[in-house]
Simulated scan of single mutants.
Amino acid sequence: MIDMQFTLAAREWLLGASFVLFAVVFVAILASHWHHHKHADEHFHASTLTEMAWSVTPMVMVFVTGLAGVSSVFSF
């Protein structure tokens, strides 16, 4: 039988690791958009806002879904 304390500790560790990975990927995508915007031709993209929205919206969806995982580990 698996110890409940070990299971909770593993969930907390995985949740923390997932959050760190999410934050790193989020910053990397935004930085690549910013770098691309500074070095792209004027004719490549018309709207930086649209380009950012295509990246930020799925990340917000993943973050909101992650809140369900947090609520299963921590009771608020």
Rank of each mutant, 00 (worst) to 15 (best):
A68V: 07
S72Q: 09
T65R: 03
M4G: 08
V24C: 07
T65D: 09
I2S: 15
H37R: 09
F76R: 05
W34E: 10
H39G: 05
E12Q: 11
S32H: 02
F76A: 06
E12H: 10
E51Q: 15
T65N: 06
F22N: 01
S71A: 15
A9R: 03
K38W: 05
V70Y: 07
A53I: 05
V27A: 09
T50W: 06
M61A: 14
Q5R: 13
W34F: 14
S32L: 04
F22M: 01
F76L: 06
V64Y: 07
H45P: 04
M59G: 04
H35R: 11
Q5S: 08
D41C: 06
L49Y: 14
A28S: 05
V73L: 13
L30R: 01
S75F: 08
L8Y: 11
A46N: 02
I2H: 15
H35D: 10
V70P: 01
G69T: 14
V73N: 09
E42Q: 02
V62W: 05
M59S: 06
L21T: 11
H35N: 11
H43E: 07
L49H: 15
G66L: 00
A9G: 03
D41M: 02
S71H: 14
M4P: 09
F74T: 04
H33R: 10
E42M: 03
H33A: 03
F19S: 01
A28I: 02
A53D: 02
W34G: 08
V70S: 05
V56Y: 00
M1W: 07
W13A: 15
L67C: 06
D3P: 12
A17D: 06
H39T: 15
A28F: 00
L15H: 07
S32I: 03
S75Y: 04
F6K: 14
H35C: 13
F6C: 10
S75M: 04
A40V: 12
V27K: 03
T7D: 10
Q5L: 10
F6D: 15
P58E: 00
F44Y: 12
V56A: 00
D3K: 11
V25S: 02
H43R: 05
W34K: 12
G66I: 00
V64R: 01
S47L: 02
M1E: 14
H43D: 12
V60F: 00
E42V: 05
L8D: 11
A31F: 11
P58F: 01
D41T: 05
A46W: 04
E51G: 07
S55N: 15
A53F: 09
Q5H: 13
H33L: 13
G66M: 01
A31N: 10
L21R: 08
T7G: 07
L14M: 14
F76D: 07
A53G: 09
S47P: 03
M4T: 08
H39F: 06
F22E: 03
A40G: 05
V60C: 01
A10H: 10
S55G: 14
G66T: 00
F74Y: 11
L49R: 13
